[in-house]
């Protein structure tokens, strides 16, 4: 399990439930490592401004990580973390490696709706 203040997706069941219960979901799949920590921090900071988005993390090396690792949209990714944005259960964007606040908000605003 990742040591972040985000809610974690820890099983296939969690994943399915999260997508079923939320129109807009951002999942960051990574480790407690250098390129991942800043992205979790960005997500934590954005949580209050994007109440319509469910921000979740997922441990890359645990069995649950296979969900994100095996998506066609992350094929060829070689930089942690793998971050995937879902709208109505479908992938609308995916990024590999560290992302800034500006990069994340640009994707959120374009695909999942602008902040409050």
């Amino acid at each position: 399990m990742l040591q972040t203040a985000l809610e974690h997706i820890e099983s296939e069941q969690d994943f399915g439930d999260t997508l079923a219960a939320n129109e807009n979901v951002m999942i960051c799949c990574g480790r407690m490592g250098p390129m991942c920590l800043p992205v979790y921090d960005v997500m934590e900071a954005l949580t209050p401004s994007y109440p319509h988005v469910a921000f979740r993390d997922m441990a890359f090396d645990e069995p649950v990580g296979r969900i994100i690792r095996s998506l066609p949209e992350t094929a060829g990714f070689t930089g942690l973390p793998f971050t995937v944005y879902f709208k109505a259960g479908k992938v609308v964007s995916a990024t590999s490696s560290i992302q800034t606040m500006e990069q994340v908000t640009a994707i959120l605003d374009e695909h999942l709706g602008a902040q409050d």
């Binding site: 490592g33 250098p34 070689t78 930089g79 990024t95 590999s96 490696s97």
Partner: peptide
């Protein structure tokens, strides 16, 4: 190719290779 082959962190991404 950033995150698709090009990396700036060996400890993070070394095992992909």
């Amino acid at each position: 190719f950033g995150g698709r082959g090009i990396s700036y962190c060996a400890t993070c991404d070394g095992d992909f290779f």
